[in-house]
Design a protein around this nucleic acid. Structure first.
Lengths: 196, 196
DNA sequence: CGGGAGATTGATTCCAGTCAAAGGCGGTGG
DNA sequence: CCACCGCCTTTGACTGGAATCAATCTCCCG
């Protein structure tokens, strides 16, 4: 997360994004740095036949969509707001200048990009090789880790459809697999709510 | 690619890697920066049931395995040499010092990490959503682009098994799909050799 | 010429996708 | 307070396509 006063100094604007509003679309050229102040943004790719694959979710303090901006490419995914959100929006040129004048920001960004790469490597390994149950498990473990509740049982605040889009399966498959997993005591389901 | 004299200055060593030799294994802590001088290195992850997924191939001038090193994590994949290769090996500490003293290297590394992220986003979109034929097509297009022969027909120097490991399919499926694709004139097969 | 690696083929299985239909919950407005 | 609606969840039956398994085949190489 980049300090807000610095962002403002280089020309960042605050922007309110309504629920379901798009911030950019797959195929657009990446021209801005975005950082969430408050809210929740989903990044997802869509295939020809209309199926969507969630590339990531970003909340307070997270930035998103940097890679294409850094290499002046088009977005491989769209960004949509899950609820009313507020974000900083900083144009590429201001961003570049900021990098030059703040070495520590550039270094942090490097670490961030490295960790994104790392996560994506792990993710694609899971997605390709593993059986259905493991994919879902990987998603749950990931979520829990990110939330910082390493051990205790927590509620998973996603619909089955959202989970499906994340792991690249159909809703029905997710439902059936989760049911099996709850028999096996791998997860807990109560009142249709999922705990892990 | 980082200049060899700079690498040497920070303590990089040249190392000869025999065909099939491993440079690191999945799960090892990442302690070194590696850059290929000559040869070909394959990065791949293995799932419990022994199936392997190729994360990338690296040849002359490419570096590999940086993300886990930068964030002090374990490797999510193993690195194995496809033939007798020569590489530079530079310890993390020397690497960090080099970054501090060469701003342009850090900046290039940032761009490299961003582009790796970008490629991985695109790849995972392909892998999840698309049908078999499209996955293989994406692989071929990717290879051709990287080779810099945008238009003319080139020979694809991979075995069916290697392609399968890249796109996450079984050999037989790759063979059958390629055959269909050759009927459709999407690829050309002659003497079991594949052209695209 | 024999051996081995990769390529190919055919038969079969299995599992996620698809389609269609209910079921249940929460929220809204009358 | 209740009826209705829309969204999510669940279930069952069926389908299709990739994985699996088991043989061969072909080419290259020593």
């Amino acid at each position: 997360m980049i300090d807000s006063s610095i962002l403002m100094h280089y020309g960042a604007l605050q922007k309110i994004i309504e629920k379901d509003e798009f911030i950019f679309h797959e195929g657009d050229y990446a021209k801005y740095y975005f950082q969430v102040i408050r809210g929740k943004i989903k990044l997802f790719s869509t295939s020809e036949d209309g199926k969507s694959f969630t590339q990531g979710m970003f909340s307070d303090g997270d930035s998103f969509g940097e890679p294409p901006m850094l290499i002046r490419e088009r977005y491989p995914s769209s960004a949509q707001s899950m609820n009313r959100s507020i974000i900083y929006k900083l144009h590429e040129s201001g961003f570049q200048q900021m990098l030059e004048e703040h070495r520590e920001i550039e270094h942090n960004l490097l670490l961030l990009m490295a960790s994104r790469c790392y996560v994506k490597s792990v993710t694609s390994r899971e997605l390709i090789n593993q059986k259905t149950e493991h994919r879902i498990m990987a998603f749950l473990i990931d979520y829990k880790r990110k939330k910082g509740h390493p051990s205790s049982r927590i509620h998973i605040p996603f619909t089955r459809q959202e989970i499906a889009d994340f792991v690249g399966l159909r809703v029905e498959t997710v439902i059936r697999t989760l049911k099996t997993m709850s028999y096996l005591k791998l997860v807990h389901i109560e009142d249709r709510k999922l705990y892990f």
